[in-house]
């Protein structure tokens, strides 16, 4: 019982020294301020001497790396564009060359062809003239033969009808008929 009382008394004393809020017990402010100032000074020196310069350097380095990388990427991109242009140029050149070669070959073939065609035309026209001549001969031959046959036939027909025909007159008549 006695101990409880003393404890209570002790608590009362404590409560008196720290009335409700320990924050308002000004007797230990000196202690807090002392340790706080030490803490702040230590943090300040750690930050300003080591941590902040280090982080600033890292951030600057990162920024630099990123900038460099972007520059390198841009350079590579420019190179790629250049290469593509060169490729396209080569392609266009090759195409032009191919077209030229094709046109040349075509012209050569055309020339050969023209010569051959001319030759063939000449041959054909020669042959055609020959043939025409032959046909004309044949036709002339045929007309003579027809005349002979017509004469003979006419003489026979006149004879058959009982006439006595003058061979010359018949021939003349046949020739007139055949003309008309």
């Amino acid at each position: 019982m006695a101990t409880t009382t003393t404890d209570a008394a002790g608590h009362a004393a404590e409560a008196a020294s720290a009335p409700g809020m320990p924050q308002l017990d000004f007797s230990n402010w000196g202690n807090q301020i002392f340790w706080l100032l030490i803490t702040l000074v230590v943090i300040y020196f750690v930050l300003s001497r080591i941590a902040l310069p280090r982080i600033a350097a890292v951030l600057a380095e990162r920024q630099g790396t990123i900038t460099n990388d972007i520059a390198a990427a841009e350079e590579l991109k420019a190179k790629a564009v250049e290469a593509e242009e060169a490729y396209n140029q080569a392609l266009a050149d090759a195409r032009v060359e191919a077209q030229k070669i094709a046109a040349e070959a075509k012209a050569e073939i055309q020339a050969d062809l023209d010569v051959a065609i001319q030759k063939a035309d000449a041959e054909i026209s020669a042959k055609a003239a020959e043939s025409e001549k032959a046909i004309a001969e044949i036709r002339a031959g045929a007309l003579d033969s027809i005349k002979d046959v017509a004469d003979a036939t006419a003489n026979e027909v006149v004879a058959a009808l009982g006439g006595k025909a003058d061979a010359k007159a018949v021939t003349k008549a046949v020739a007139d008929r055949m003309k008309g």
Binding site: N31, F34, W35, I43
Partner: peptide, 20 residues
């Protein structure tokens, strides 16, 4: 508690320093 006495204030401020 003198001005220099290490207290729980000291301990937890020191821990803050350690954490920083």
């Amino acid at each position: 508690i003198n001005w220099y006495t290490p207290t729980n204030v000291t301990l937890w401020m020191a821990l803050a320093v350690v954490a920083v």
